[in-house]
Amino acid sequence: MNTRFLETLVVLTRVGSFRETAEALHVTQTAVSQRIASLEDLIGLELIDRSSRKLALTPQGEYIVTQAKRMLKLEKEMLQYARSDTPPSGKVGIGATETVVKTWLSPLILELNQTLPLIDPEITVDTSANLKDLFRRKKIDVLIQDTPFPEATGTSDFLVRPICDYVVHWVASPKLVPHTQRMSLQELAEYRLLTFSRQSLPRAHLQNLFMDRELEPTICSFPSVESILQLVLDGYGVAAIPGAFVVKELEAGTLVRLAGPALPTINTTAITRRGETAAIRETAKLAVHMAAQLAQRLHERTGQAWMHAARESAD
């Protein structure tokens, strides 16, 4: 029996709606309905009382939920027992964007080496589009990126772990913009605007922000974070980038943060395949942990939230 069907039924009875169940499991409502229907077909019983306006179980459904909880608990205990004496080991291909490289990839690798020394990480740094292609072709095991991965929607084939949200700021060299008072979109449009590659979500967000006001600024896109940083330091333009990239420069005064229209955060996730090995699972979990540590350190150091860390789970 597919325990994912049982898990879906248990979550459905806990949260009380198909929509919230879909959100909790990172699948579509259609996928939730299909799982419940498949479970009913498998055991030959109606579990959901479809004559009720509110979600309600049939008497048989109540019994099956009780047994499902027992089976899921037993499965978890067996897996924990099987894994307890065998430390995770083996090669793990990690694909990451420069956003991750610039912030917490190095601490992740160092922590892997210290706490999980039998894991051999192989790092690939590239654009989100190229990393997705490598992940589809199973060339990497953990996809850490900041754009949607359509294949992970409406299927149980992948696990999507939220990692963090980067807060995006307007920054510039004081040589270019000597003041830090609030700037309007019209004022910002007078400068070259520096951001990520043309296919990236941050660039699309930036372009849409100005299009809504019928403004056409010069938007310069770069695949390299280091290129953006060097150009903004040289006074070439105003950058719309995560503030976590430039905390040191802001503290040193070589860059200033401009007060301007709010920009969408950059949402980072770790995506793995269902049935992942222990090494892959622990690597993805450690990625979530290291991002949370960095977010906390930056907040303690500066008193500002440069990143919003996702809540760590025990999966």
Rank of each mutant, 00 (worst) to 15 (best):
L131W: 05
T86P: 08
R83P: 03
L118N: 01
V177K: 10
P87K: 06
G154A: 07
L255T: 13
Q199K: 11
T86I: 05
L188Y: 03
S84F: 07
V100Y: 03
T195C: 10
L47R: 03
M307N: 02
R273F: 02
F210P: 11
R137N: 13
Q114E: 14
C164M: 05
V288N: 04
N130H: 10
R257Q: 08
I241C: 04
L176R: 08
R14Y: 01
E216K: 01
G154T: 09
A96S: 11
E190K: 15
A24M: 11
L105M: 03
P148G: 13
K285T: 05
E276H: 15
P107S: 12
A239N: 06
E300T: 01
M211W: 14
D141L: 06
A240D: 07
V225T: 12
T147F: 03
S51C: 11
P242K: 04
G253T: 09
E23K: 13
L294Y: 01
T3I: 13
P178M: 08
R192F: 02
T3E: 13
L143I: 15
E75F: 01
L233V: 04
E20N: 13
D212H: 12
A262D: 11
F5I: 02
E312Y: 04
R182V: 12
D165R: 01
A284Y: 09
C220M: 11
V92L: 04
S200H: 03
Y81R: 14
L12H: 07
V225N: 07
C164V: 11
E122W: 09
N267M: 08
L134A: 15
I266W: 02
K132G: 09
R53S: 03
P242A: 07
Q304W: 00
A37T: 09
T28N: 15
A310E: 03
L206D: 09
H299A: 14
